[in-house]
Simulated scan of single mutants.
Amino acid sequence: MLQLQHRRLVLLLAVAATAAAGGAASAKPTAYQALADYDFPPGILPKGVVAYTLDNSTGAFTATLDASASGAGKSVCEFSIQGSYSLRYQTKITGKIKPDHLSNLQGVSVKVLFLWINIVEVTRRGDNLEFSVGIASADFGIENFLECPTCGCGFDCNDLLMLKPGVATAKLRLRGAF
């Protein structure tokens, strides 16, 4: 009798372990992990993707950003990078993805002089990403996109936190001060 109970317990534990392993394997990856499956770094999307869809047969996708993460209560995510480029992401981004190529992009734009121009394609070529606005393109090293930017401040958020009055984590320390 004890042996039968022991076998049932072992069988129950084996079934539970198999179910847990199968459940973990079938969990939907994050949007950032899905980008990696197509050889793109996570930093081409800002922090705050709350949902996405991906049709693996066609490559059609949508990504939805958290509107509250956009900074200053806007319905878009906007920030500057490298001191001269400003990027804007709508709360809904759509397009098609295949390995090393994003096309038919909608919802992502770059500010050139005084105009906002839609980025329509992103192509990975080795260690570079080529961003195309249709008639022109620019290449950037992939190392610039290993980290996800934050809406409102891009990659320089820690510097902004230090400047905001009343932020609990901002502290001014003088050398030699107690």
Rank of each mutant, 00 (worst) to 15 (best):
L2W: 12
Q3G: 12
L4G: 09
L4W: 13
V10A: 09
V10N: 10
L12N: 04
A14K: 06
A16W: 05
G22N: 08
G23R: 15
A27T: 08
K28Y: 04
T30N: 04
Y32T: 00
Y32E: 00
A34S: 13
D37W: 09
G43N: 01
K47F: 09
V49L: 00
V50N: 05
N56T: 15
S57Y: 12
S57P: 02
S57E: 13
F61D: 03
T64F: 10
L65R: 06
D66E: 11
A67D: 14
A67C: 12
S68M: 09
S68K: 11
S68H: 06
K74P: 06
C77G: 07
F79V: 06
I81W: 15
Q82V: 01
Q82C: 02
S84F: 15
Y85E: 04
Q90W: 08
Q90M: 11
T91W: 08
K92H: 02
T94L: 03
T94C: 05
K98P: 07
S103W: 12
N104Y: 05
Q106A: 15
I117S: 00
G126C: 10
G126N: 09
N128S: 10
E130V: 14
V133S: 05
G134N: 05
G134F: 09
A138L: 03
D139F: 00
D139V: 00
E143A: 11
E143N: 13
F145L: 03
L146P: 04
P149R: 03
C153P: 07
L161S: 09
L161R: 09
K164P: 06
A168P: 13
K171G: 02
R173W: 07
